[in-house]
Simulated assay, not measured.
Amino acid sequence: MDIKMEENMAEHVVMTPKKKTSQKTTLMIQRQKVSRPLPGDSKVHIAGGDHQGIIINKEAAADVEDPVPQQASLEFRVFLVSAHTGKHTQENRRLLFWFHPDMEENEVPAVAQQFFRELVSPQEFPRDYVGFIKKIMKLMQHKYTKISKLEVELSQLDETNEAPTRPLSADETALGKIVELTEDKVLEMIESSYPNPITVGDIARENCWVESDVELILAELLNKGLIKSLDHGAYTRVIVKQMPTIASAKQPTIAIVTAQYCEKLAVDAMIENKETFVRYTTV
């Protein structure tokens, strides 16, 4: 696409394929003022309606490294399920951020983290590639206007026939003992899974409980406002408030993030002059 930079041109969010191999795909999404391509141009797709302002380049750009290094990067892994073979593929997704020059350097990490949290929110996580890329572009277009460019690296890792297992905290099940079905135990499992939702079937299978009995417990927790139901029969913890903002004077030199209480105790035993912040406070 022939892009001309002029003052009177409208700003668009433009997605361009950058590099693709059998195991890795790189996409570049950037904010640009561009001239509107001709409607018959087969090299681009011009979005309309609710997606107006988005342009998709169909041809790959030259794989030239940006002379300006990225200002932030975040990555995570997902498991993809093939509709044809049923196999599970682990994929690493990496986001590289560039911001507008007027963006304060000390604001970059917080904005990148907030963008990342919205992108991977369990309640609205895109189920396919199209939805994933579209969500990135819409967030850039309407909310995170200080992001000038994002590169998305999608790298396929291992492939397996078995579904991945969700880790839970150690309990009496691991010792071969019968675990009593109680509200506290079900709530503990939901909290261990957070921020990922967990289904009735997952809860019941973990401790060989009857699903109908688990549903009664979940109904009680719902009435108490401790959990909330999501799509597909899943449940997650209700969060009361977020972690307070850390003052600049208290920024840690080393930050260790733990998910389980037992992990926190292990870290506390090894480190002196420490301070603990709880990411989420629950009722």
Rank of each mutant, 00 (worst) to 15 (best):
V108S: 02
K134W: 05
E104C: 06
I133P: 06
L80S: 14
K143D: 04
V152C: 14
T85Q: 02
S82T: 08
K138F: 03
F132M: 10
H142F: 06
Q114S: 13
R94H: 07
Q114W: 09
M140L: 08
F97Q: 00
G131D: 08
P67R: 09
P122V: 03
F76I: 11
D128T: 12
V152Y: 13
K87H: 12
L96I: 05
V81E: 14
Q114L: 12
F76L: 12
D158C: 07
E124F: 14
F97A: 00
T89S: 15
K134P: 07
S73E: 11
Q71G: 05
I147C: 03
V81G: 08
A72W: 01
N92V: 10
A110H: 04
Q113C: 04
H88D: 03
P109H: 04
S82L: 10
R94A: 07
E153P: 09
K134E: 10
D128P: 11
R127I: 14
H88K: 09
E75C: 12
S148Q: 14
R94D: 04
I136N: 02
A83I: 13
H84Q: 14
F79E: 11
F99C: 01
E118T: 06
K143I: 01
E151F: 04
A110I: 05
I136V: 12
M140N: 01
R94N: 07
Y129G: 08
E107Q: 11
K135W: 09
F79G: 13
Q123C: 13
Y129K: 14
K143C: 01
K138N: 06
R77W: 08
V78H: 04
F76H: 12
L80T: 13
S73D: 09
V68Y: 10
E107T: 05
F97K: 00
L96S: 08
K134S: 11
F97L: 02
L74V: 05
R93G: 07
E107D: 11
I147P: 00
M137L: 08
F115E: 01
V68S: 11
D102A: 08
K138H: 07
E159T: 11
L139V: 03
L74D: 01
Q70R: 11
Y144Q: 01
R77D: 12
N106I: 08
W98Y: 04
F97D: 00
Q113A: 10
W98P: 02
F125D: 11
D158Q: 12
H88W: 14
F115T: 00
Q123A: 15
N106G: 03
Q90T: 10
L80Y: 13
E151L: 09
V130S: 15
L157E: 15
P122F: 04
H142W: 04
D158S: 10
L80D: 14
L119H: 01
E153V: 15
H88I: 05
L95D: 05
L74N: 03
A110N: 06
L119I: 04
I133D: 08
V68Q: 13
K149Q: 12
E104W: 06
F76T: 08
F116H: 06
Y144D: 00
V108G: 01
E104I: 06
L96W: 01
F99L: 04
I133G: 09
P69Y: 03
N106A: 08
A72T: 00
P109A: 02
V152A: 10
